[in-house]
């Protein structure tokens, strides 16, 4: 289970790349891929190097438009990170 104190990074076989046709950011892993929207791509980029979930949440909150509720940012980013972990795309420690 991921929480604010978890340390994580993208798993070794996962790559974040732009799709040459659509220009959208993709998380690529063996035989599969995820086509990401802009916010998901930003979160995934922050996972490229080992970091804490708290750090990711703080940086996404700082980048979000003024007035975006912090609770919404935290819950939606956490849900996205859990979806990546469920697919084995993250290496998580320290939770």
């Amino acid at each position: 289970m991921i929480d604010r104190n978890s340390r994580l990074r993208l798993a070794r076989q996962v790559r974040l790349k732009a799709d040459p046709r659509s220009g959208k950011q993709m998380l690529l892993y063996p035989e599969r891929g995820l086509e990401l929207n802009e916010i998901a791509a930003r979160v995934a980029a922050l996972c490229a190097e080992e970091t804490t979930v708290g750090e990711i949440l703080d940086r996404m909150a700082a980048a979000a438009a003024a007035g975006t509720p912090r609770e919404r940012i935290d819950s939606e980013v956490l849900e996205f990170l859990c979806a990546l972990e469920d697919r084995g795309l993250l290496v998580v420690s320290g939770s």
Binding site: R32, I39, T68, F80
Partner: peptide, 15 residues
Amino acid sequence: MKWETPSFVEINMSA
């Protein structure tokens, strides 16, 4: 940056 729910579409590359 305008906030939107982070989302993705899963693609089976081999198919």
